[in-house]
Each structure stands twice: as structure tokens, then as C-alpha cells.
Amino acid sequence: MFEFDEMQIDAVVAKGRQGLWGPLARAVSLVENSPPWEVSVPRAPRPCHIVGVTGPPGAGKSTLTGRLIESCADAGQRVAVLAIDPSSPLTGGAVLGDRLRMETHLSGRPEVFVRSLASRGSHGAVAGATRNIARLLELSGLFDIVLIETVGAGQTEVAIVEVADTVLLVTVPGLGDAVQSIKAGLMEVADAFVVNMADRPGVRETTRHLRLAAGRANAVYQTVATEGQGVDELRVGLQKRWQDLTEGDRLQELRLHKWSSDASLVAEAWVADCAATMDLEPQDSMHNAVNRILKEAAVRWTQ
């Protein structure tokens, strides 16, 4: 179990203020390489806006994130990005290609911190690690906004973006039906929708579709990320949402609510890790097998 102490954080902050990202990058690795139950990140004195960006593959999330970096940075906001790509379940390796699509928006902006992460390990472990890294970025006080980008293809991704204060679901015209039916879980956690590639046919139907599903007329944005169209409006919308959240107790309530799901994620990761090393008898009943797993997980936890 390790906790970041003040000295470590001070070094991260002092270097980060000069645009030297080495200490922060190493601190992120430390969190990334530890199971979530072994890391304790102290609570930040000042919160920053943690925004999850997700959606189906090919919807233009990385390109949109790149444009958001630009728009936020130009508006004076300090930006960090966590870009998560899947690890191969066979080899554990990964090609992390999101940086490639953001690169043109990074040149001349050394103050922006971008980190690619592979979605190693179990569902709960990835989400837990992402949460801890986001909290570490927040604690550094070096950022006003942290964008977490991940492909929205299943439960793991829902869990990853759920750590965010605001979840953006990015889709494209014509995918409205698919998004609604297949990504039901994502639809429910999304706080705002982006119809990207809005210069393509079908944009009005998709937008209408999403408005109906969202039930909030103002929560659907249209963008053409490759051209930068609509991105400033999206950024202003995000700022407005952050203002709403931070006025009064809404953010506190929101994070308190997420805290319990965070805890259950870590618990889930622990149990999965434990079960992976147990010899379970195939002829055993499911009830007995679960019984053994939970008992063993509890014993190991208290050891």
C-alpha cells in the first residue's frame, strides 16, 4: 500500500509548473502499475473537471479530443488527457494510437499533458487505476480539465467513464439506432451527446433521436471534429456544466454517489484477481464455487 506524500506531490507540482512532465509521468506509472487497492491518492483541495469521452469505434473521439485540447487551451484552461486503448487479452500488448491523432493539436502547447494507457487486467482494475490516475492529476492542481478518452464498446468502458464528472457520448449520423439499442449502458451514463461528422447526411434524425433519448434538449452537440466546427460550443457547454456542478453541493453529491461504485469496482477487481488463482472444481455447484471464491477473497483481504 502506498500513499503519495506531500514531498512527492510537491516535486510533481514544481516541475509541472515549468512544463517539465517527468515527475508527473512517473507518478502516473506508479499508479498504473499498482492494483487499485494498493494506491491511496489524497483528496485534492480544489476539484477539476473530469470529463469522460466515449462512443463507438470510428466516431472520431480522438480527433474531437484533439480539438477540445486546442479549444480549452486557447480559452486559458490547463488540459490533461488520458487516452485508453484495449490491451490484447492474448499477449497483454497494445498499440496505443490516440496520441497520433492528437499530435497536431499538441505542437506549440507544451503545457498540455497527454498520457496513453492500455486497459490492462480486469474490468474493475482498469477502471480503478483510471480513477486513481485522474485523482492524482486533480491533486497536482496543474489542470482545470482532465479528458478521459476510451472506446465505448462494453461494460469496462462504462466503468471507466463513470469515474468522470461529465460523460460525453460521441456518435455519428446514422448510428443513432445502433447506439441506443447496443450501448444502452452508455446512453444511461451520458450527460451530453455529440453528433460528430455532422456534415454527413442523417445528422438531423440522429440528433432528434438522441434528444428524445436524452430528455434534455440542450445536451446534444453537433461537431465536425476534422474541421473544428462546433468544438468551441461544446467547450462552452462543458464550462457551463462545470459551473453548475461547482455552485452549491452538486459536485459533492455527484462524487459521493460515484464513490460507492468506485469502491465496488475495486472490490470486484480484488475478487477477480483472487479467483484467477484458485482451482475450482468444475463439478462443484455454482453456489459452492462462489462461496469458496468469496470466502477466500475475504481471508486474503484481511491477511
Binding site: A25, V28, A94, L96, L100, E103, S107, F113, R115, A118
Partner: peptide, 22 residues
Amino acid sequence: EVVYTGIYQTPESILRAVVQED
């Protein structure tokens, strides 16, 4: 885990990738 940064990179952008990605 491979971070591919693509073509037309400057030494500064490559350094930034190495540092930020640790």
C-alpha cells in the same frame, strides 16, 4: 505497449511523447 506517434514528428514532439508516456 506501443505508443505510435506517426509521421512528420519533430524532436521536441518525440521527446514530449517519451517523457509524458514514461
